[in-house]
Every structure is written in C-alpha cells, then in structure tokens.
Computed example of a mutant assay.
Amino acid sequence: MRDRVVAAVIGCALLTGIAVEYTVRAAHRGRGPAASAGSSFDLRAGRLVVRDMTPGPGRGRISAVAGSTRTSVGPRCVRFHAAAGTGVCLNTDPGPIPRTYAAVLDRTLREARRVPLPGVPSRARVSASGRMIAWTVFVQGDSYTSASFSTRTGILDTRTGRTRTNIEDIPLTLDGHRHTSPDVNYWGVTFARDDTRFYATVSTKGRTHLVEGDYARWTARTLRENAECPSLAPDGRRLVYKKRVSADPADPWRLYVLDLRTMRETRLAERRTVDDQAAWLDDRTVMYARPRGAGGSDVWAVPADGSGAPRILVPDAASPVLLR
C-alpha cells in the first residue's frame, strides 16, 4: 500500500512515540503496585494484565495485577492484547533501521509466530476465542492527531495461518453505496464472538466512520459517522469508542457507548479526552489508559452506563485487558 495523506485531523492517537517508549524515564513516584521480580505467570482467565509503565528496568513489560501486587516478567511490548490463552505483542527492535513486528504469544507468553510490520505500533486486538488477531501500525506520521498520516491494519487467523497484511481492499459500503477511494484507512479492529464479524474505524474524504465487517464474506459497511477505535463489550451488544467533540487538538475526544440494537449513544462520565482503544473490565465497566507526565500513563475505569465518575484502576500502566 502506498502512503496516503489524510487532510482532516482525525482518529485515535498513539499515546507515546516509539522513541519515548524506550528513552523516557520519569521519576519514581512510589504509588504503583509492587513488582514481583522473578515470578512467572501465564494468560490465565480472570487475570487483569497490563503493560507496566512504572519507571525502571521493567517498563513496558507485560504484567499481571492482583490487588497491590504486580508481576512484571512478560515481554516488552508497545501494544498488547490477549484472550483465551493467545496474546499479541506489538514491538519495535531499535537500531539503525528499527524493525516493527507482531509477536503471537502462547499461554505461557512464549513467542509462537512473528509477523513483520511496516510502521509504528498503534493498536492490537485478539478475538474472544483467541483465534483472530488484528493490529494497526502507522506507516506515515506517528499520530492520528497529525494532519498527515496513513495506517495499515492487518488480520491473522491463527487456525488457518492466513494473514491479511492490509484490509484496505475490503469492499466497503458507505451510506448504502459502494465506496472506492485511494484515501481509505482502517484502524482499531475489535472482534465479535463468531470470529468473522468485526468492527473498526474507517476514514475517507476527511470523515471517520464506524464499520461492521464480515471476515468470511470479506465485506464491510458503515454504521455511523464520528466513531473511532471501537471495542466490543463481553455481552456483544455494545461498543465503546471515542467520538470527536472538539476541534481542539489537545482535547478532541470523549468516550461513548453505543447500544447496537437501538443505536443509542451514551456519553460516559469521563470528561477528559481519551486517546486509547478502550477495553471492558466487565459488562458494566470500561477501562482505558490516559497519559501522565513525561511518557507515563495510568489505567482508569468508568461505568459503562454514563453514571458515576472515573477512577484510577491501575497506576503506571497501559494496554489493560481482563483475560477471559
């Protein structure tokens, strides 16, 4: 795919650049869960797993969180997700020519397969069954908030081994009509339980849309405008996503939940911008990362029905996922 220039300021931004991931070290604030060095863990159901953003040598490692204890012995990742004993870790090996890849991890976090990727890691998802894996990377620019960027989104079927390194050739129906355009970009895939239906963001002609795709039939159609980086609830009935509410590049998005049966939106109680592909702690709670300080971030949680108030779920963390 050739790089494309998207004129509008759109999308869901990368929380930090690759250089920041490897070079920024904030002062230790002493409020995060204690790391349990030398321990090991697997992708066991019921565990809350994050990327450890605590300043120090373990920064970026995959960690299991249990109360005030944090076990940080997994691989380093720039993005991470897992389900049903399968994980995906997006990372970049530094060097004169940095090499980005998606590592498919087994239940014990050992690398089972590596897929070379052409850009900067952005998003990662595994389907509930562990079969389907998706990723998004930037191939031009380093943020969805920049005026010029391009992405590539790929999907891997771990059962068949088939890999689609770029889904931009999927036939797209936009507002009821077949749409073709050289500026189409996809990102932020989330899978339904049947391992064929998925949701994602597509941008074209300066607008973003929520799309529903069918992997088996290889088709996609838009559902509504202005919805970015969706994440499907465990009940399969709702999506959480970011919606642009302001032209201010420092404060553009708010979190909304969409009921897929009624297509009714609910604005969540988080009143600050959220620059992440949110995840679900359970059917009642959404969790997401928000940046803090010099390259740090915390994982927050907020009720999915619009009530309550946001709270810190895991300090010094990112890429949260509750293993199911």
Results as ranks from 00 to 15, higher is better:
Leu105Cys: 10
Asn91Trp: 12
Ala124Asp: 01
Ser122Trp: 14
Ala83His: 00
Asp106Phe: 11
Arg99Trp: 06
Arg110Pro: 05
Ile97Asp: 12
Asn91Ser: 13
Gly119Gln: 08
Pro121Gln: 04
Gly119Val: 08
Arg125Ala: 10
Arg114Tyr: 05
Val88Pro: 00
Ala124Met: 03
Ala84Trp: 00
Pro96Cys: 07
Leu117Lys: 03
Arg110Lys: 15
Ala112Thr: 15
Val126Gly: 01
Ala103Ile: 08
Leu117Asn: 04
Asp93Ala: 15
Arg110Trp: 08
Arg113Cys: 07
Asn91Val: 11
Thr86His: 01
Ala103His: 11
Leu117Ile: 06
Asp93Leu: 11
Leu90Val: 02
Pro121Phe: 03
Ser127Pro: 03
Arg114Leu: 09
Leu105Pro: 01
Gly95Ser: 05
Val126Arg: 00
Thr108Leu: 14
Asp93Val: 14
Arg114Pro: 11
Gly87Ile: 03
Pro121Trp: 03
Arg99Asn: 10
Ser122Ile: 09
Gly87Trp: 02
Gly87Gln: 06
Ser122Arg: 14
Thr108Pro: 06
Glu111Pro: 09
Arg110Met: 10
Pro121Leu: 02
Arg113Trp: 07
Tyr101Glu: 13
Pro118Ala: 12
Thr92Ala: 07
Pro98Ala: 04
Pro116Gln: 08
Arg113Asp: 12
Thr100Trp: 02
Ile97His: 10
Gly85Ala: 09
Gly95Val: 03
Arg110Cys: 11
Ala103Glu: 13
Arg123Asn: 12
Pro118Ser: 12
Gly119Arg: 04
Tyr101Gln: 13
Arg114Met: 10
Glu111Cys: 13
Ser127Glu: 01
Gly87Phe: 06
Glu111Lys: 13
Glu111His: 06
Ala83Gln: 02
Arg113Met: 09
Glu111Gly: 11
Ser122Glu: 14
Asp93Phe: 06
Asn91Ala: 10
Leu117Tyr: 03
Asp93Arg: 15
Pro121Ala: 04
Ala103Gln: 13
Cys89Thr: 04
Pro118Asp: 15
Val104Met: 11
Ser122Cys: 14
Ile97Tyr: 09
Arg125Tyr: 01
Val126Lys: 01
Ala83Asn: 00
Ser122Thr: 14
Cys89Met: 05
Arg125Thr: 04
Tyr101Asn: 12
Thr86Asp: 00
Thr86Met: 02
Val126Glu: 00
Cys89Tyr: 02
Ser127Asp: 01
Thr92Arg: 04
Tyr101His: 15
Pro96Tyr: 06
Ile97Met: 08
Ala84Ile: 04
Asn91Tyr: 11
Ala103Lys: 09
Ser127Phe: 00
Ala112Cys: 13
Ala112Asp: 13
Val120Ser: 10
Glu111Thr: 15
Thr100Phe: 04
Gly95His: 03
